[in-house]
Nucleic acid binder design. Structure first.
Lengths: 216, 216
DNA sequence: ACGTTGTACTATACACTGTACGTTAGGGAA
DNA sequence: TTCCCTAACGTACAGTGTATAGTACAACGT
């Protein structure tokens, strides 16, 4: 039996292969068997390094978070915050599966903590009390999560002709008496370009509210 | 063969059973076979009313959106906006699967359109230009989506003793030299009570930014 | 140099999934 | 009554995560 040599695998190698499979087949087509095949290994081999599929997900998430650049230094704190939020959005757009991984699994891991540390320390240095800093952090994080998840969702929809056709059909079927505003604004609402503008708009609203509460 | 009589099923009945299964077994344990069993029917019977599982998801989502109360009238617009956002959050908390359904499927259906119409018309009446109203709508919606998804996630985590133990372990393993702020604020960040406060904090930030841009 | 042991990987198997396909029976229309 | 349409059925398939048991290899103590 052509048994593969020992120690060809490692947690990191598994994670990288998992990422390859995930980006190739999409989060839905992702399977442990696919990862194992990518590695030329039996499906159960992965269980040496990860307790189960969710555990592997956590590994992938933390690995992706490791790609986040550090918070920039030497800028006014609102610009630092803006920068971190934009970087996270960009990373999520580059790796669409990250959105799902962030939304469906608890946060853990060193890289994830590193990112949190960056944003939190910016807020603390800006003079926010601990509790307010934590609340602000959560608000910013969840805004980026929701906004970017939605952006990815819209983009995928727009790229699937079948989904697009069905969406148009369901729009057409709306009574223009009952939903005048929705119909009036349908083009704006399903706009896929201008994602930057949309994201920055909401982020600036948050930052405007925040700077109005800047500690003395 | 004890064949069930004709026309015992209907799209609405299927959706209601699906909802029962979903709330009983959680979104992960949800399966078409489970729904069929709940209805006392073979798995393939569902395909008479829904093209596939995703189509059924859309039906459930729209059904849940039908539970949204209409936007209140006779209040200043910021209070109307606040009310709609809070109502959506509450609905998502009552039906945790809604968060997932909103994040992973495009919006369609009459009830979903009704909710959008409510918020959009409030914004238009407040004097926002069409494009700004649409952007604001998306911002508010995505904030509620992200914030409440996260809140649900935290709550589920807190209720699973195994997940909680592993989270604590991963917190302990963080170097207090590299992540002083995360460690200092760990209690605040993983706080599960005070979800109202957290949600309202972010919502108020957005509204503060918005009212600062109120059209003349 | 040689058993021994722990471990990295394999093989098999199970319960389960969504759904394609073909069949059958009940109710309404002619 | 006859016929047809269609709602619900049964069967089958490819695929899933993972429990369990087995196997061969590397390192180690003697």
């Amino acid at each position: 039996m052509a048994r593969t040599p020992r120690n060809t695998l490692s947690p990191d190698l598994v994670i990288r292969s998992a990422l390859v499979v995930m980006e190739a087949k999409g989060p839905d087509g992702f399977s442990l068997r696919g990862v194992a095949a990518e590695l030329g290994v039996g499906p159960m081999a992965l269980y040496t390094y990860f307790r189960n599929k969710d555990d592997l997900y956590d590994g992938i998430r933390d690995h992706l978070m490791g790609l986040m650049p550090p918070a920039p230094e030497g800028l006014p704190w609102p610009d630092q915050v803006r920068s971190v939020c934009r970087d996270l959005r960009i990373l999520m757009l580059q790796h669409p599966c990250l959105a799902q991984l962030l939304a469906s699994r608890p946060l853990s891991g060193n890289e994830t903590a590193r990112v949190a540390e960056g944003l939190l320390s910016v807020l603390r240095s800006a003079g926010f009390e601990p509790e307010i800093a934590a609340r602000t952090h959560t608000t910013l994080f969840t805004y980026v999560l929701g906004a970017t998840t939605w952006e990815i969702q819209m983009a995928q929809e727009q790229s699937d002709p079948d989904a697009l056709r069905r969406l148009r059909a369901s729009m057409e079927s709306l009574s223009s008496r009952d939903f005048p505003t929705v119909i009036e604004l349908a083009p704006e609402l399903s706009r896929t370009t201008g994602g930057n503008t949309q994201f920055n708009y909401g982020l600036d609203l948050l930052l405007a509210g925040l700077t109005a509460r800047t500690p003395s």
